[in-house]
Lab assay of single mutants.
Amino acid sequence: GPMASDKRPRTAFTAEQLQRLKAEFQTNRYLTEQRRQSLAQELGLNESQIKIWFQNKRAK
C-alpha cells in the first residue's frame, strides 16, 4: 500500500542471525546498550536493526 515507504528497507536477517536474536530474546527481553553493541558486532548488524527487531518481537 501507499503506507509502505521505500525509505527503510526491511532487513533480511539470516537464519543464523535470527537464531541468535531469538536466543538472546529468551534470556533478555530488553537489551542494554552494551549487549546491543556486542550483538551488532558479533552478527555484523546495525544496532538500530537489532533494537527494532527487539521492539517488534516484544510488540507481538
Rank of each mutant, 00 (worst) to 15 (best):
G1M: 07
G1E: 14
G1L: 08
G1H: 10
P2V: 10
P2N: 14
P2L: 08
P2T: 11
P2W: 03
P2Q: 13
M3P: 14
M3R: 03
M3W: 02
M3K: 08
M3I: 14
A4V: 10
A4K: 09
A4H: 14
A4D: 09
A4Q: 14
A4C: 12
A4F: 09
S5F: 02
S5P: 10
S5Y: 02
S5Q: 13
S5C: 13
S5G: 12
D6S: 09
D6T: 08
D6A: 10
D6R: 02
D6Y: 01
D6W: 01
D6M: 03
D6H: 05
D6C: 11
K7N: 13
K7W: 06
K7T: 15
K7E: 15
K7I: 05
K7D: 15
R8C: 14
R8Y: 12
R8D: 14
R8Q: 06
R8E: 10
R8M: 05
R8K: 14
P9Q: 04
P9E: 07
P9I: 03
P9L: 04
P9Y: 04
R10G: 15
R10Y: 15
R10E: 15
R10T: 15
R10W: 15
T11M: 08
T11C: 11
T11D: 15
T11P: 15
A12F: 13
A12T: 12
A12E: 15
A12R: 15
A12G: 07
F13Y: 08
F13T: 02
F13D: 01
F13G: 01
F13M: 06
F13K: 02
F13C: 03
T14C: 03
T14M: 02
T14A: 02
T14L: 03
T14W: 02
T14V: 02
T14H: 03
T14D: 04
A15M: 12
A15W: 10
A15Q: 10
E16R: 13
E16G: 07
E16L: 14
E16N: 12
E16H: 11
Q17M: 05
Q17T: 05
Q17I: 07
Q17R: 02
Q17K: 04
L18E: 06
L18H: 07
L18S: 04
L18F: 06
L18G: 03
L18N: 08
L18D: 04
L18Y: 09
Q19D: 10
Q19E: 05
Q19L: 09
Q19R: 09
Q19M: 15
Q19P: 01
R20M: 06
R20P: 00
R20A: 08
R20F: 04
R20D: 01
R20C: 05
R20K: 09
R20E: 02
L21F: 02
L21K: 00
L21C: 02
L21A: 00
L21H: 00
L21M: 05
K22R: 07
K22I: 10
K22G: 05
K22F: 09
K22W: 06
K22A: 09
A23T: 12
A23D: 12
A23L: 09
A23G: 06
A23Y: 11
A23P: 00
A23V: 09
E24W: 02
E24T: 03
E24R: 01
E24C: 03
E24D: 02
E24L: 03
E24A: 06
E24Y: 02
F25E: 01
F25Y: 09
F25S: 02
F25L: 03
F25C: 02
F25Q: 01
F25A: 02
F25M: 02
Q26R: 12
Q26K: 14
Q26L: 11
Q26G: 05
Q26Y: 09
T27M: 14
T27R: 13
T27S: 14
T27I: 14
T27V: 14
N28Q: 06
N28R: 05
N28S: 12
N28G: 05
N28Y: 04
N28M: 04
N28L: 03
R29P: 10
R29H: 08
R29F: 05
R29G: 04
R29K: 10
R29V: 06
R29A: 11
Y30N: 08
Y30I: 09
Y30A: 04
Y30V: 07
Y30R: 05
Y30C: 06
Y30D: 05
Y30G: 04
Y30M: 07
L31H: 02
L31C: 06
L31I: 10
L31K: 01
L31F: 03
L31Y: 01
L31P: 14
L31Q: 03
L31V: 07
L31G: 01
T32S: 11
T32Q: 05
T32E: 04
T32A: 04
T32C: 07
E33W: 06
E33G: 12
E33Q: 11
E33N: 11
E33L: 15
E33A: 15
Q34D: 11
Q34W: 08
Q34S: 15
Q34Y: 09
Q34V: 14
Q34P: 06
Q34I: 12
Q34M: 10
Q34E: 10
Q34K: 09
Q34G: 13
R35Y: 09
R35L: 09
R35W: 04
R35A: 08
R35D: 05
R35F: 03
R35V: 07
R36S: 08
R36W: 04
R36A: 13
R36P: 02
R36T: 11
R36L: 14
Q37C: 08
Q37E: 05
Q37I: 12
Q37K: 12
Q37G: 09
Q37Y: 14
Q37L: 11
S38L: 14
S38T: 15
S38Q: 15
S38W: 10
S38F: 11
S38V: 15
S38C: 09
S38R: 07
S38H: 08
L39I: 10
L39A: 00
L39S: 00
A40Q: 03
A40F: 01
A40M: 03
A40C: 04
Q41W: 09
Q41A: 10
Q41Y: 09
Q41G: 07
Q41E: 11
Q41F: 09
E42W: 03
E42H: 04
E42V: 04
E42Y: 03
E42N: 03
E42T: 04
L43M: 06
L43A: 01
L43E: 00
L43R: 00
L43S: 02
L43T: 08
L43V: 05
L43W: 03
L43Y: 02
L43H: 01
G44D: 09
G44C: 06
G44F: 05
L45K: 03
L45W: 01
L45Q: 02
L45D: 00
L45S: 03
L45V: 12
L45H: 02
L45C: 07
N46Q: 15
N46H: 08
N46S: 13
N46K: 15
N46T: 14
N46C: 09
N46I: 08
N46F: 12
E47T: 14
E47G: 07
E47Y: 03
E47M: 04
E47F: 03
E47L: 04
E47A: 10
S48Y: 13
S48W: 14
S48D: 07
S48I: 15
S48A: 11
S48Q: 14
S48R: 12
Q49I: 13
Q49H: 05
Q49G: 04
Q49F: 06
I50E: 00
I50M: 02
I50V: 07
I50Y: 01
I50N: 00
I50H: 00
I50S: 01
K51Y: 09
K51P: 01
K51Q: 11
K51W: 12
K51M: 05
K51I: 13
I52M: 10
I52G: 06
I52H: 14
I52D: 04
W53G: 00
W53R: 00
W53S: 00
W53L: 03
F54M: 03
F54S: 00
F54G: 01
F54H: 01
F54R: 00
Q55G: 07
Q55S: 14
Q55K: 15
Q55M: 08
Q55T: 07
N56Q: 11
N56K: 15
N56A: 08
N56I: 14
N56M: 11
K57N: 08
K57P: 03
K57T: 08
K57M: 13
K57H: 07
R58M: 07
R58S: 06
R58D: 04
R58L: 10
R58H: 05
R58Q: 06
R58P: 02
R58G: 05
A59M: 10
A59C: 11
A59H: 14
A59N: 13
A59F: 05
A59S: 07
A59T: 09
K60N: 07
K60G: 06
K60I: 08
K60V: 08
K60E: 05
K60L: 10
K60M: 10
K60F: 03
K60W: 04
